[in-house]
Design a protein around this nucleic acid. Structure first.
Lengths: 189, 189
DNA sequence: CGATTCTTTGAAAACAGTCAATCTGTGTGG
DNA sequence: CCACACAGATTGACTGTTTTCAAAGAATCG
């Protein structure tokens, strides 16, 4: 399963075989069954996680016990709790598997060493960060400006793959609407 | 006004006088009067901008002509259109001054050179990115989970400084609610 | 199968948005 | 210095969307 991460990197930057071997040597593969936690609220998160197979979600649980999904990640996406990783404080997010999945994990010190030792890897990481931030800002635009219907439409256009494999009530949670509302929106169109 | 940026950097990382001088040599100061654009939708954005004085906002305008504020930046904050900066494509955001302001600008090639030449500067930049992303994710949580009242409460707690200097209708726009609703929320509490 | 889990549907209630009018404070020009 | 204009904030009545609660179907999994 390291192959998936290797392909991902090779498609984006040119690394030597030695450098790739260096990455492989610090990567652990973790298999997750559907619904299994990768991270539970309150634990400290200290990895960089790459999804090699399957689908995961990041979410919070509010006072009423309702889940709010912040983020989905499928193959070739990264996932984690950046706040916890950065500060070393307990995570406020939960991460679990939407489907049976496999993730490649690199712990914080090793990941930082890779960034220092391999400039191209460092650039790749910065670029991913940049893109994530831009995407997140655009998501905010959608969330504060669109109606339920527009939010769902935009979601379908932006992530056509997701709609097929993610349960509707989770998509509703991601969009910030109730499952009932999503069901009605879908019926209308 | 470069002093403000210098203080900001010195508070966070240790740089030599030469390195600081290198940063200064590629920094331009731009003064903006209230309502003046720093970036207009459709133009290409190619800077890293640091707010030395005043307050700016990033926003989009929808089909109905309504503004939706994505982001505020006051002293010691960075602002820009990352998507446009990254891709070189026309910006989808507008940025203008909420108050008379002064920003420190470093253009993209110079900024990248600084990142390459000064490792500590590079780390600072990555850290800022990380923090921005974490903050943005938490904002999404708020936007999809909270009622108008909770959104405003959280805004007050998180950015007490903002509330005093930013007009209410802009705060409403930032929270994704109408000015009327915000006015009623405030009255209730 | 049988039991969950997920989706759909209906009716009522809550919430936020719209439109229009009024009030308030600020700043400008006469 | 005053009067006026203007932008921003508030208020009221109404509309529309979304949520809530409850129940019934449909799909999925062990």
């Amino acid at each position: 399963m390291f192959e998936v991460l290797k392909n991902y990197i090779e498609k984006r930057v040119a690394l030597t075989e030695t450098e790739l071997a260096g990455i492989k040597s610090v990567t652990t593969i973790k298999k997750l069954r559907k619904k299994q936690y990768l991270l539970q609220e309150g634990d400290v998160w200290s990895f960089h996680a790459f999804v090699a197979k399957g689908c995961l979600r990041t979410y919070t649980i509010d006072d009423k016990g309702l889940e709010h999904i912040i983020y989905f990640a499928i193959e070739d996406w990264w996932i984690g709790d950046r706040q916890s990783l950065l500060t070393g404080k307990p995570a406020t997010f939960n991460i679990d598997a939407v489907e049976d999945s496999e993730v490649a994990l690199i712990n914080k010190p090793n990941f930082e060493k890779l960034c220092r030792d391999i400039p191209a890897f460092n650039r790749l990481v910065s670029e991913i960060l940049e893109k994530s931030l831009a995407a997140t800002q655009h998501r905010i635009t959608a969330t504060i400006s669109y109606t339920a219907e527009q939010k769902y439409q935009q979601f379908l256009e932006k992530y056509p793959d997701f709609a097929l494999r993610i349960p509707q009530h989770m998509i509703a949670s991601y969009l910030g609407i109730t499952p009932e509302t999503l069901s009605r929106v879908r019926k209308r169109s």
